[in-house]
Amino acid sequence: MKALLSDSPGGPDTLRLADLPDPVPGPGELLVRVRAAAINFPDVLIIEDKYQMKPPRPFAPGGELAGEVEALGDGVTGWQVGDRLIAVPGFGCLAEKIVIPGKSAIPLPAARSFTDGAALMLTYATSIHALYDRGRLESGQTLLVLGAAGGVGLAAVELGKAKGARVIAAVSSDEKAAAAREAGADDAIVYPRGPFDRDGQKALSEQFKAAVGPAGADVIYDPVGGDYAEPALRAIGWEGRYLVVGFPAGIPKLPLNLTLLKSCDVCGVFWGAFAMRDPAANAAHVATLFRLWDEGKISPRVSATFPLERGGEAIAAMAARQAIGKLVVTV
């Protein structure tokens, strides 16, 4: 089989396409023929050794997939050769075949494409856990979404609207603002690109405050970090919830006096650990996502696809924050 491998820490240009022996499923495992693999920001970090998970090299990046069962290991029940599935193994998906635990696979309905299926889990599962569990978002509340045109951002916009919230999307271009509005955002603001000096941060905070209104945001969803974080926190409402999702703009330092003045919560969001610690709750969220998908309230937006040999280009586009929605490598 072919796989796009990381041999040493570095950027997307360090990846190489290689021929490897087909993997063999062990007890409880499935051999999956990968049909599509979505690219996410952790793929940018993992090949540079900057992610919390550091697989032994060489390894293939790519954290989520859609594919078909090609073989079953001993003891696997509920699956047959040819069954369609999606899964989030964390890495290894930029390859023609992969072995995964059978219990981690989720059936993919025949009506859904492999490309859309690959783009569902990481962004929507992260966002539903963030908004419904950590953010306790309720109908009628105001949600401010930073980076609202990225994969997790658009998922947060759609899930916020599905919950009945007023959603304000914050993005870095008019094109991204249009995408957020198409996803259902009630309003969209275009902020400048950082880094910002103190005056720039103050101006950005005033922009956020004007958008959410005088009562402030009940929930702020931040998958961006960096110099955007403190201005957003200053726009939070009384007893609001600030959701820490990711840091493509850098890891921020927040003045904790703001949390006292607003009596607000700063909540970390780590979906992968949540799914491992509470699989029943995660399964319930997955069922909700498929129901919302069937109802047309959510729909993964795939803005570009790449063949396996160009998977590094997809990761580079993600690193440059050029993507609207999801990027998918077709295999």
Rank of each mutant, 00 (worst) to 15 (best):
L260H: 15
V190E: 00
P223E: 06
D199P: 03
R241K: 10
G246S: 00
I236S: 14
T259G: 12
V245C: 00
G194P: 00
S205F: 10
R241N: 09
Y221L: 05
G225L: 10
L254R: 13
A211N: 05
A203R: 09
R234S: 15
L258S: 11
G213W: 01
E206N: 10
K202L: 05
G237Y: 02
D265W: 09
Y228M: 10
E239H: 09
G240D: 11
L261K: 07
I236K: 13
A188S: 15
P248H: 01
P255R: 10
L204F: 07
G213S: 04
N257K: 12
R198Y: 04
R198C: 06
E230Q: 15
R241M: 11
A229K: 14
Y221G: 02
W238H: 07
G200K: 03
G194R: 03
K262G: 03
A210S: 02
G250R: 05
V219Q: 01
E230I: 14
D218F: 02
G216P: 01
P223D: 04
P223S: 04
A235Y: 03
G246D: 01
C264D: 08
L261N: 08
R234Q: 15
C264S: 12
P252A: 12
E239W: 08
G194Y: 06
A235R: 02
E239K: 04
Y191A: 10
Q207N: 07
L243E: 03
L243Q: 04
L261A: 01
P195T: 05
E239G: 01
Q201S: 07
F196E: 05
A215T: 03
R198P: 03
R193C: 02
S205Y: 08
L243K: 07
V245N: 02
K209M: 07
P192Y: 01
A249V: 06
R234E: 15
A232G: 15
A211R: 05
L254A: 13
L256V: 14
A215C: 05
E230A: 15
G216T: 05
I236V: 15
A232K: 12
E230T: 15
L256S: 12
K253M: 13
W238V: 00
G237H: 01
I251W: 10
G226L: 10
L256P: 11
